[in-house]
Write a protein that binds this DNA or RNA. Sequence first.
DNA 1: CTCCATAATTGAGCATGCTCATAAAATACA
DNA 2: TGTATTTTATGAGCATGCTCAATTATGGAG
Lengths: 178, 178
Amino acid sequence: MQSKRERTRARILQAAWNLFQESGYQPTSTRQIARAAEVADGTVFSHFSTKLEILKAGVQTQIKQVIEQADASLKGCTPEDRLLHYARHLYPFYAEQAEFSRELFKEILWHQDELRPQIEAFMFKLFDAPVCEREQVYGQVLMDCYFMTLLDGLGAEEVSASLMQERLTQKLACFTSK
Amino acid sequence: MQSKRERTRARILQAAWNLFQESGYQPTSTRQIARAAEVADGTVFSHFSTKLEILKAGVQTQIKQVIEQADASLKGCTPEDRLLHYARHLYPFYAEQAEFSRELFKEILWHQDELRPQIEAFMFKLFDAPVCEREQVYGQVLMDCYFMTLLDGLGAEEVSASLMQERLTQKLACFTSK
DNA sequence: CTCCATAATTGAGCATGCTCATAAAATACA
DNA sequence: TGTATTTTATGAGCATGCTCAATTATGGAG
C-alpha cells in the first residue's frame, strides 16, 4: 500500500490536474489547488518544488503513454518516415494540450539536461543503430525541423496538429527528393 | 525637444538597463527600477505595460544595430552563405546577452505575430527574390536550423557563439554536399 | 493671470508563487 | 506501553509584478 505521503501527493496532483483542465494552467492558483486537495498551502510545495513541476508530473505520465503507443506501432525504415510516424502520434497530443505544452517548453528549452537525453534517445530510434558522425548531424537537422514545426504550430491562434504534420512533411520532402 | 513624458520614459529605460546589466533581469525588481529612475512604482507601468517590455525595448535598439551592420556587410550568394553571415553577427550578440535572450524567446516564441514578419523579411534577404513555393519550404528548413541551433546554444551552461556557428555550419553542410 | 480639461504621476493595495519556523503525526526503539 | 526521533503538514508571512482611484502637473483658451 502506498504511504500516506504518496497518497497526499496523488491527491494534490489529481486536484491540480482537474483544475488545470477546467480553467487552464495560469489561471489556476496554487491556493486553489491546495484547497481542492484539502491540504495547506505549504503542503503543495513540500511535494512539488514548483507549480510547473505539478504540471510536468501530470503531463509526463500522459506523454509516456503516447510515446509507448508510437514505439509499439513503429513502421517505416527511413529516418524521415519514422520521424513523421512520431509526429503523427505526438503532435496531436501537444496540440490538444497547447497551453500546457507552451508552458512546459518555455522552461524546458533552457534545461537541455532534461531535454538532451530524450533527444538522443529519439535519434537512436530514428536510425536504430549507433549513429555515425554524419548521421548524427543529419539527425539533428531532422530534430530541428521536428521541434520548430511544433513550436511554430503551438504559437498559432488556431493550433492544428494536421497542419503541423503537413508542414513537417513538406520540409522532409526537401531531403528525400534531392 | 522631447516631451516630459519621453524623458521620464528614457530615464526608466536607462535605469532599468543599468540594473539589468549589473544584476541580471530576474533579480532586478520593478521597484528597484522605479527607485533608480526616481519615479513611483506605478509610473514604470504607465510607460511599459510589462517588465518584459522594458527589456524588449532595451534589446531591440541594440539588435537593430547589429542587423544593420550585418545587412551592410552582406556577402555571399547562396542562401546558406548568407544565413551563416547573419549567424556570425547575431549569435555573438545573443550569446553575450544570454539571459536576456532566453527571457525574450520564452515569450516571443508564442507570439509569432511579432516573430513571423521578421522571419519573412529574413527569408527575403536570403533569397533576395520573391521566393517560390519550393524555396519557401527550403527557407523554412534553413530558419529551423538557425533557430534551433541558437536555442540549443543558449541553453548550454557555457554559452558559446563560436560553438553555435560551428554547429550551424555542420548542419548546412548536409544540404550543400548532396 | 485664471480657470479648466487633459495628461502624467503617485503609492497604497491586490493576488500570486513560494519560504520557513512551528506544530502535529508517524515511526523506531525501550 | 511510553518516550525520543524523524517525517509531514501547517499557515502566517515575504517579495514580486501589476492595478487603479486619487492627486498633481501641464498647457491652452478667455
